[in-house]
């Protein structure tokens, strides 16, 4: 048994920061969400209203509009992301030479670019005279991706650019963890390259795909940097994503209690998705 003094010495720094900056904020918001303080109130804990803020969120169409657009984005995003990262990972896994290593660095680089800056760059490239605009015009698709109706595709492209590399690295780790004996056995049975991919690689990577889907679904509802930055170049509705709406409610409506309730809903949904995902990931078979 370790001595208490030693435990405190090593554990206290991390766990006190963890308590103050993760646990307390979550509980504090939960507390705030049960009040509705008038604008001039000294404390945000005035005027207890029970679950009224949650009732308001449930019927707030602007809030749900955020979930609606994110659901649509997720439906587009998940398949494209999975297929693209899987194909790139398969390719890079089969090329172990210098070119393959270079390919991995290239694909991963965008992950290191701050999302705000990535969005700014793509935003400039979408504007008239920029390369994407010119390229689309060259193809005869005189399309302005910054038009309000197309902004979701403008965002989709930015997010794929940012995250494919990260997912490729995860899938490469997965491919690496498949025992060679499985491949040998398949080859002995006369399986072709395509059959090995379908019968060995895809089933063995099932959990990695689930992990990526989980990250995508959570990341999706928390999207903020991209739509917020794009809103300077185009008209993005302030309820476009739930996090964007929280910012709006905080700074423009100045309703901290209501913002707290929405924030808590967001945390709760993220936690539920994560618990389901992690349980699946850690389960046997």
């Amino acid at each position: 048994m370790a001595k208490l003094a030693h435990l405190l010495l090593f554990l206290l720094p991390f766990f006190s920061l963890f308590l103050i900056f993760i646990i307390v904020p979550v509980l504090y918001t939960l507390g705030l969400s049960f009040f509705n303080a008038p604008p001039a109130a000294k404390s945000l804990f005035t005027n207890y209203v029970g679950a009224a803020q949650y009732a308001r969120a449930v019927t707030d169409s602007t809030f749900w509009q955020g979930y609606e657009s994110m659901l649509y984005l997720t439906l587009l995003w998940v398949p494209i992301m999975l297929v693209a990262s899987f194909l790139i990972a398969l390719f890079l896994d089969s090329r172990r030479g210098k070119l393959g290593a270079l390919g991995k660095v290239i694909v991963f680089l965008p992950y290191g670019v701050p999302t705000v800056i990535g969005t700014l760059m793509w935003g400039y490239m979408y504007t008239a005279g920029g390369p994407i605009y010119s390229f689309l015009a060259f193809l005869g698709l005189s399309h302005n991706l910054l038009a309000p109706n197309d902004i979701i595709y403008a965002m989709l492209n930015i997010i794929i650019w940012e995250w494919v590399g990260y997912n490729v690295v995860i899938l490469l780790a997965g491919l690496n963890s498949i025992p060679n004996t499985l491949y040998d056995a398949a080859r002995l049975d006369g399986a072709s390259g395509w059959q090995i991919t379908r019968r060995v690689k895809i089933p063995m990577l099932k959990k990695y795909f689930a992990f990526i889907i989980m990250l995508t679904v959570i990341g999706d509802q928390l999207l903020f940097n991209e739509p917020f930055t794009l809103s300077n170049l185009s008209s993005v509705p302030f309820g476009f994503t739930p996090n964007l709406y929280i910012y709006h409610v905080t700074y423009f409506l100045e309703e901290f209690n209501y913002a707290s309730a929405i924030a808590f809903i967001l945390i709760a949904i993220s936690l539920v998705v994560a618990v389901i995902g992690v349980r699946y990931f850690w389960s046997e078979g």
């Binding site: 963890f18 900056f21 993760i22 307390v24 904020p25 979550v26 504090y28 918001t29 705030l32 945000l44 959570i218 990341g219 928390l222 903020f224 996090n243 929280i246 910012y247 905080t250 901290f256 913002a259 707290s260 924030a263 967001l266 945390i267 993220s270 936690l271 994560a274 618990v275 992690v278």
Partner: peptide, 19 residues
């Protein structure tokens, strides 16, 4: 710690600010 892993930092930006 495992629970902490599942709380995304973007979800608690606003709560952290209020605190």
């Amino acid at each position: 710690v495992a629970i902490g892993l599942m709380i995304p930092s973007t979800a608690i930006a606003f709560p952290t600010f209020v605190l």
